[in-house]
Every structure is written in structure tokens, then in C-alpha cells.
Design a binder for these strands. Structure first.
Lengths: 184, 184, 184, 184
DNA sequence: GATGAATGAGCCTTCATTCAT
DNA sequence: AATGAATGAAGGCTCATTCAT
């Protein structure tokens, strides 16, 4: 029975999320530590580097998102599952606007290490894996899967940023799906 | 009678472009000045603030892009003109990968001032103005124009990032267009 | 449990005193830090701003002076107490020429914040409070107290600057007193 | 017949006066030049150094003051001439608040060179020369003339700063005179 | 493990001064 | 003589990181 940490790393990550959401990319570790109610030293005990903290935050957000999307019913038709991902993803983003925003912020700047970005793709691959399935079923236009995956995420982000309501989100999904699928 | 400019402001902007492309958002003014072959003081003579430099760089890129897109033949059908914008935009991005990347980098971070972002929209509005026309012609799905505009830019960026070749770019355009337009 | 202060804030104030005495108002924080045997960062850990450092220095000098003047015997006649203030003030200034000089230097420039100046008046008000008493006793000429207070300090400073010896200082006090009091 | 300067040094000095009055000791040469409607280079053509500019400004103010005090009627009794100096000095300071303030500002900081300060004393010595005469006439208390001279100037400055009106200024003169003179 | 004082490189910006025209 | 672009040494301040306790 080892003595548990007085402060969970999760506390620091939560603080980092809030601070970065507020201060943007320039947020300092000192401010994060203060927001977490932790000393400066403790932060660096738990994360050897600011980079490590950023990466951990990024991945924790991605994991959270992946959990929110969750498992899909394999008996449902492909489009229905795709739609389910779409809805859950949007719901998550609406429920976690800070996490959504910070995730994009970190991704767009170069703060997240390449490894973390790659790992992030890994995590959400369950969701985007549907595209693979769709491609194998011959449903998709003849373009690289990476491209179509990027498009999918872009549509989702745009839908969140635009603050679409449920009805609009449904239409927006059709815009995506109609684009991605061949018209045979 | 007065000493002529030894270095055009454009020299500094070009240097800034390269340095920011290499170092990311954290690029220092000192490094920019050095890359421009200019003293630190000179940089601040020409741009009173780092912010001003960033804004000027951003706007110069946007202007360059707008020039590359150029004027469209009003006699062409809407889709043809849209396609023309698509092709020229991609061509510009391919020819100016640094400018394309830096433009997005700046836009996504908070480095560019709100005014500059607004002015940037203004500059490229000629291109995105086509969407307005399409909407008025009843061609588009019932979603906010801002959303559709964002999608369009996202598709373009994704196409550039994915390094699509000419044939693929054509297909990618159809993906966008098929998505945006109603199916009646 | 935490690392104790290696250098007291007082060390930095002492260094600031010396450096400002030597370099004048333009003394740099870097030089102060070096004189205190401390890194530049440490200085700003202890004083968030150069302004704060200056203010703290100014007030510490004022406090030191107030301590040196100390409490007066309320049973003594007014003039005797006034003389006592005079003597102790001069003694302090002779013993602390740097502090005396720097205090004036800071006061005359705009380096000290308005609040610190006000607080400084507060601190030495015990001494100058005698003037109020004298005025209420009807001893003083009919001029604003602020004016008479300023004169008093000016005389003290002049006496210090001129390097008057004890005998001369006594005469100088009479010059002040004879001037301030009515001749009836 | 040499071509006259397009811009008199006096223009620059006037600008320097205003700018220093506004910005304090930290005023930059660039701002002075701009205020004088002159290029940066021209300023340094006329004054080889900022120090030289400051000194020239200081001395020009002192000269102006000396002119304002002017010549005294040698037939008047000493105290009357002293009073005349007092009145004229105050009148000048009231009429030239900027000059008065800047003169003190420069003097109190270390901006003015030692030579200029000395020259400044020289210039106003005509006025303070009265003290020599008074001392030789045995009117003054037994204290160094430098000290008494400093007191005199301090009283004048204090009177200006306190904004005394004419009646009060008369009383204030008596305070000075009663203090300085022996009571035999 | 937790703390926060200490560090010092680096950042943006200012400004007196020089110099080519 | 006048101009203003160019210079580069500071200056104040921030912050990721280290380390003694």
C-alpha cells in the first residue's frame, strides 16, 4: 500500500486546461501550478518538462473524447454508426468547450510534440476507423484516407465553432457524408 | 537628401516569414532581424511593435493570396468560377508553402490582432463572395454562410496539407461542391 | 521544509541604496542585483517591479529616520522638542549620508510612487507634527503649514549638505526657529 | 553674410523645456526633436550630445532668471534690494512655471554636468551677491555663506511651490530675513 | 514527495548617437 | 546644414527549470 500523491497529476492537468483556455498558448507553468493549488516545484516533480505537461494534457483530452464517443453497435449500418460518432463528438465538444478549444489550440501551435500528436491520432482512431471500413466497402471517393479523415475532423470542429444546433448539425453531417461518398 | 532605405520593409517581412516557418510562433524579433540582415533597432523602426510586424506579415500573405486568385470571369457559370478559385488557391499554396503554413499558424494562434484578422477576411472576400452568390441562387444547403465558408477554407487547407496532385484536387473539389449543394 | 531565503530583501535594499547613491537615478536593476550578490531573477522575485523596489527603499529609509528621531518627551517645552528633532535628524543624516542623499534623490525625481511619498510623510509626521502644535499655540507666523514644513525640511537638508558642525547646527536651528516664530 | 540657421538652437531648447516638463527626466531626444519640428539629426548637429543640450537648457533658464532679476539700485538699503530680488524672482517663477520646474528637476537629478551647475551659480551670483554684502556689513548670523545662500534659494523655491500670494510672499520674505539676520 | 527561493538566458523595446545622402 | 534610416548596447521583466530544505 503506497502512499498516494497528495495532489493527483489530474489536478494539475485540469488547472492547465483552464489556464491555457484563459491565457492562451503563453500560459506559464507558474500560473498553472498556482491554479492547481500546488507549488511550482511539485508541478515539475510530476511533469519533468512543460512539454510533458502539454503532451499529457493533450492526450488526456483526446482520451476523454474517445471515451465520450465510446463503442459503437457493430450491427448498425455504417452510416448510422458514422452519424453516432458525429453526434457524440459534437455533444462532447459542446459539453467540454474548454477541452475542445484547448485541444485545437495546442494542435495548431507547435506546442504538442510530434509523438503526442501521433498518439492522439491513435486514440481517436477507433472513431475514424469507420472511414477505413467505408473505404473497404467501396463507399468513399477515391482520395487518400488521411485526407478524408482530416476533412471529417475539420467538419466537426467547424460545426462546434459555428455553434450549430441539433437540426443544423444533422444537415451538416449530410454535407460531409454526401461529399465523402460516391454517387453511384 | 535623406539616406534611402537600405532594406525594404518587405525584406523584414520575408525574413519573418522564414523564421516563423522554422521556429513557429515563438520566433523572436532578434532572430527575424538577424535573418533580414538588419539590426534589432531597425526592425523596430519599421514596425513599432512585434504585433505590428505580425499583422503586416499576415496581411501581406493574404494580399498575395488574393492577387493570386485574381479576378474571375463573370460570364462563367458559378461552379466553374468556384473551381477556378479552388485551382488558383491550391496553386498558390503549393508555390508558397511557407506563406500558406505561416498564415494558418498565425491565424490559429492569437498573435494576429483582431483588426488584422478582420482585414484579412476583407481581402479574400472576393473569393468567398462566390458563396454568397451561390446561396442567393438557391444552390446551397440551409446552413449559415459562415459555416460553409469555414468548410471551404478547411477543405483547401486540407488539400494543401495532404499534398494532393492535380487529379486528386479535382476530386476533392467535387467532394466539397457535392457536399455544399442541395441535391434537388 | 522549504529552502530558506539566502538573501534577505534587506540585502537587496542595501545594495540598491549603494548603487543608486553611486549611479544616481539611472541605476539599473541588473547592477543592484549584482551588488546584492543575487541574480537578476531573484531581485524580481522579491520586488515585482523596479518601482516596488524603489518605493520599498524609500520607505525603509524614512522608517529608519523616524526610528532615529524616536519619541519625544512631552513634558519638554515645544522649542526644546523641536530642537531635539533637529539634533537627532542631523545626527542620523550624518551617520547615514547615503540614505539621506538617496532619499532626497528619489523624492525629487519621479521615481517614487505617489503612494510611497504619501506613506513617507505619514512616517515622519510624528516629527513634523510639532509644527501643528506650535501653530495651535499661536507661536508661528501666518503662513500655510505645508510651507513651513517644507522650509523645515529644507533647512535640515541644507544643514546636512553644508556639513555644519555641532555649534553651527545650533545656530542654524535658531535661524529656522527665529524665522518661523512671531516676534511679539 | 553667412546663411542663417533654418532652426535656431533656441527653438530646440524651447521644445526641450516643454518636453522635459511633460515627460520628466526620461524625455528622449527624439521627442524633443519632434517637438521642435526638427529632425533627429539636426538636434545632434546643434548639440553634440544630450548632455550638452541639457546643460544649455539649464544655463538658458538660469540666464533668463538672472535677466528677470536684473540690476538693483545701489542706493537702496540692503534689505530693500534683497526684497526686490525676492519679488522679482518669485514673479519670474510664476510667469515661467515650466522653466522654474525644469530647472529644479534638472538640478536635482544628476543630469546637469558639474560644470553647468557651477556656471549656473555664477549666473545668479549677482543676486546672491547681496548676501556677501550683508555679511560684510555684519548683518548676518555666523554661518557659512554657502549655507545661507542655499537657504535663500530653498525659501524661494518653497514659496513658488506653495503658490503663495503676494501678501504671503511678503511674510515669507520676513521669515527668511528674520532668520538670516542677527538680533542685536 | 512537497516546497518555493534562486537562477540566468532570453524577450521585447527604447534611445543616444552615427552616417550616407 | 538638414535629414531620417541604421545601429547596438542596455533596460526592465518573464519564465522554465533546478535545488536546498
Amino acid at each position: 500500500m503506497i502512499r498516494p500523491l497528495k495532489h493527483e497529476p489530474a489536478d494539475i492537468l485540469a488547472a492547465a486546461l483552464t489556464v491555457i483556455y484563459t491565457d492562451g498558448v503563453g500560459a506559464s507553468t507558474a500560473k498553472v501550478a498556482a491554479a492547481a493549488g500546488v507549488s511550482n516545484g511539485t508541478l515539475f516533480n510530476q511533469f519533468p518538462t512543460k512539454q510533458a505537461l502539454i503532451d499529457a494534457l493533450y492526450l488526456s483530452i483526446k482520451t476523454d473524447l474517445a471515451d465520450a464517443v465510446g463503442a459503437l453497435d457493430p450491427d448498425e449500418p455504417l452510416k448510422a454508426r458514422m452519424r453516432q460518432v458525429w453526434d457524440r463528438w459534437l455533444a462532447w465538444a459542446r459539453a467540454n468547450p474548454e477541452a475542445h478549444a484547448v485541444s485545437n489550440l495546442l494542435h495548431d501551435s507547435d506546442l504538442v510534440s510530434g509523438e503526442a500528436v501521433a498518439a492522439g491520432y491513435e486514440i481517436t482512431s477507433a472513431a475514424t476507423g469507420l472511414l477505413v471500413e467505408a473505404q473497404e466497402a467501396g463507399l468513399l471517393v477515391g482520395l487518400p484516407l488521411d485526407y478524408l479523415g482530416a476533412l471529417t475532423v475539420d467538419h466537426l470542429d467547424a460545426a462546434v465553432s459555428a455553434g450549430l444546433d441539433d437540426r443544423q448539425a444533422g444537415v451538416a453531417f449530410d454535407v460531409l457524408w454526401r461529399g465523402l461518398t460516391t454517387t453511384t
